[in-house]
Design a protein around this nucleic acid. Structure first.
Lengths: 135, 135
DNA sequence: ATCCATGCAAAGCCTTTGCACCCGA
DNA sequence: TCGGGTGCAAAGGCTTTGCATGGAT
């Protein structure tokens, strides 16, 4: 963290990071808010949002855009794959070996600069098995 | 469309589908609204949202969850990959050959039913090249 | 004639932001 | 001290929804 920037490690920012690192549940901002409030009862939701954004930009945590459902966060910054439950929208680590026949980075295509990719698996978690559409 | 369901092909629904099929721009709901209003000036935004959702569930179109930025839609229901611009959040078709060493469908893992995956490439479109972070 | 679909507007959900005060480096 | 950070609350962007009317089958 901090790198060459002028970011400060406030109590709020540190606790948010610590709480996120303690769990593997990939919580939403609101869930992080609940977790952190147990230690900092007066923290505001806005502060949680601001710090999650900053920490994600620093590369300290990962942010998952989901659309419709709330964003989720991962205290583990190391690259790994995930599975998203179509029933409850929760995310879990998904330890698969995936080999994509291309490399991220400075690939170009039709005027585009291709910098990376996003891959996530989808399915139903045990608790949502009953929501699997029959067909 | 329609399958065995009781869906009706109203003028609004048909025009929305036709307009979406005419373009390859992967428009947002609001952009679809603008396109459709040229032919149906009295259509409501709510109707556009409702029909985009229904058409996506029918498999007639594709829906892209983006998070933060508005959802985007693709009139082409056939599976193909996309690239999302990190500058303007727009989506374009990305005709790459990708071989993933797993198959979608009825795979199970740790109590999960894995039904598929989502893969999209990210980068910068020609118009947003100036937004590429130097580093 | 049914009952799904529409238009309108209000409400909802999540997230961002303005501002005055606070506090970490 | 000094400028980034915080709490609070309001605003914002996108999407969904309730309700009375309309129209496809």
């Amino acid at each position: 963290l901090q790198k060459t920037s002028k970011l400060r490690m406030t109590r709020q920012r540190r606790v948010i990071l610590e709480e996120l690192r303690r769990v593997t549940t990939h919580p939403s901002a609101d869930e992080v808010y609940s977790m952190v409030r147990r230690r900092l009862p007066h923290i505001s939701l806005g502060t949680v949002y601001r710090n999650l954004e900053i920490l994600a930009q620093c590369g300290e945590i990962q942010k998952f855009e989901s659309g419709g459902s709330p964003r989720r966060f991962d205290g583990n910054p190391a690259p790994h794959y995930h599975i998203r439950c179509l029933g409850c929208n929760r995310i879990a680590d998904f330890p698969v070996e995936v080999s994509l026949d291309f490399s991220d980075g400075q690939m170009d295509w039709a005027g585009y600069r291709v910098t990376g990719h996003r891959l996530e698996f989808v399915g139903y978690c045990p608790a949502c098995a009953h929501k699997i559409p029959e067909s």
